[in-house]
Design a protein around this nucleic acid. Sequence first.
RNA 1: GGAUCUGUAGCUCAGCGGAAGAGCGCUGCAUUCACAUUGCAGAUGUCAGAGGUUCGAAUCCUCUCAGAUCCACCA
Length: 762
Amino acid sequence: MDKAYNHTDHETDIYRMWEDGGYFTPAIDKKKKPFTILLPLPNANDPMHMGHALFTVQDILVRWHRMMGDPTLWLPGGDHAGIETQYVYEKKLAKEEKSRFDFDRDTLYLMIEEFVEKNKSVNRDQMKRLGFSLDWTRYKYSLDPHIVSIVLDTFRSLHKDRLLYRDARLVNYCPRDGTGFSDLEVVYKEQVDPLYYLKYGPFTIATVRPETKFRDTALAANPKDKRYTQFIGKTLEIMGLLGPINMTVIPDPDVDMAFGTGIMKVTPAHDAHDFELGKKFGLPVTPIIDTRGKMDFSWFLTKKDADPKYRQRAQKYHGLKVAAARKIMVEDLASDGLLVKTDENYTHRVGSCYKCGSVLEPLPIPQWYVKTKPLAQKAAMAIRKKQTRIFPLKRFEKMYLDWLDNIEDWNISRQIVWGPRIPVWYCLDCNPGIILSFLTNEKLHVRGTYDELKKTYTFDEISHGLQTLSAPLEAEFSLNAKPCTRCNGTRILQETDTFDTWFLSSQWPYTTLGYPDSEDFKYFYPTSVLDTMWDILFFWVARMMMMGAYRTGNVPFKAIHLHSRVVDAHGQKMSKSRGNVVNPIEMVDRYGADALRMALIYGAGPGSDIALSEDKIRGMRNFSNKLWNMGRFLVMNMENTKDVPFYNVDIHNALTASDKRIISELNMLTTQITKDLSKYRFSDASQRLYEFAWHKVADVYIEKNKERFTSGDPVALTALRHVILTLMKLLHPFMPFVTEVIWSKIPKKYDKPLIVSPWPGK
RNA sequence: GGAUCUGUAGCUCAGCGGAAGAGCGCUGCAUUCACAUUGCAGAUGUCAGAGGUUCGAAUCCUCUCAGAUCCACCA
């Protein structure tokens, strides 16, 4: 054996030995209870980061259970990651001075597909570098046809159960990325904007969005506000930048009397609160901002009787981006004497796109929604009844329940190409003009709902539109478009929206296992543990619980273990802009996978951030070397001594007090580690093992008995071998490579690799 | 606005009712010894502050200060 442990000499060979030996693939044994973990599917396009390296937690559990003799499945997969991947791809296109608008839908899809296929293997190879004992024979990709077909079937099933609807409500729309998002994906940023006080007929109103005032449809005041009670219900003529308009004052108890002047303009098309208010009072929805985030004054410019002076003004605003238009309008308001004052220091929070940071525009666009309340109830119940337990902290359980108890319907439509299209077909003959694609230069030009909304639809008219929509949905719900069953029309258009990626990944537990009939599904579902970072508790974990319970009748996990974020040595979040990102593969190259794994686990308290430094990883590399040299010491001394008996109860009596003491401590340690693992106390276990191996066995036991070992005392060597072999087993889940190598060097009775050796006490 | 978490050695953090701990860093000594990716010895703390419960509090309770996070979103 070499003087020092050099991981690069061993890791590749060891992993190949495990994989070729088929040890990652479980044998289904109906007499035994399986242990199953699904790997939180990484973006198939992403190289590995420290977050992925933390899946070490799962490998620890999996390796432990495998040694315990459980049929153990750790199922890997990759995610097409809809918007994430399309975003990355569009950035790539931008470098080539192209954009998504240069391609038709199918071409763009194929280009992205090719891009992903090229990168797919990178992440997989990196997982192997970390030593993850994933069953690669079962690898799944989120766009595998059989997975998609189950997802589409879920959509159909939701429709049948009346848990699905299409509605034209306000969507958080990113004009830059060209898609809407669910509420969860909105990031609110605090910023300072001018608050303008505008003259509004007899009133003064305060607003940060003067550009939307052209299409205000009402004014609202608190019914308790004595200043305005006399006006409630009255319609007033108000002078604006484009001439006089009529507006009614409506009562709204939500209006804060202390804010601004206590009276508010109502813009149902561009504000969520106003939209609800509009619904209540039957106000028209009158958008003035389009999906590109530009002002749209066509409603005014097409007016035949418009005053030429105002027409000119509208022409000036038309097509400007919101921010630019606002600036010019404020100038015009000032010159018309309509600007009362400006508060420059108004701080508020603005919804922005989590991908590109653009300000999101609330826009009225029809989207598909899942009614989540009934689904959420079951998912919450599973936790309340302790069918599923959440580790490590109560606070995550509370977060989970609070979210499910207050859940809103889920917008699953995305206006991107990368992902499965929503399986709905519209008949353009009997139900024309339903949908519009904002994505690319689609060849099919269809008059869209958004255009229709611009024509000042009332809420009644919108809901009427939705009723006519549901007809072809009922009639035409197959995977391939056939002639319309109502009018026999052949101009059928599939919904151009794709699914929110989370709609697919929320079904991962049963789609990957082959719901509903496969052996795997019957045997491995529900899975044992889900381990993931807490930041996707709502996006993914809660939704998997909902969909699993809905589709299969069982929630998908018996336990949910939430781990924390990896931060740098100073507790700072790792980010490219800070320049403190530690690349896991570089660390594996330099110090070995075992060192990185141990560094991630050691000293990481449950629920708190995990501080990782290169110093710490180096420290753990030193620990690997310590183990190596303990093994080396044993092997060297055994070489000169024949017939070292194997440890057993009979020999125990021949041991010295010192031997007996270390074995007794080892037995206590075994019990303790087993207990730690069953309670997800990985850090505690790793610290105990480190302490015992280095400071009890190496520093004390070996040093005190050194003469006995070097002189070849068979009894002493028996004890030491027993201690080291047992220690290798206990450490194997944490540091699989170095323990497997040491194991292979020590003469012993078993010929099986360590990975499938029985857990001590088992 | 609602909720939650954290404050312990220079740094990162364990401990969460019974004599203040670990890793890294630091200081001194050792060196043909399994290992210098080492060993031995050592220094460093009003356990954020105040009050309370208790025979006993870093640990439980209340408040204060400081930092962080989640949810809801305000014209």
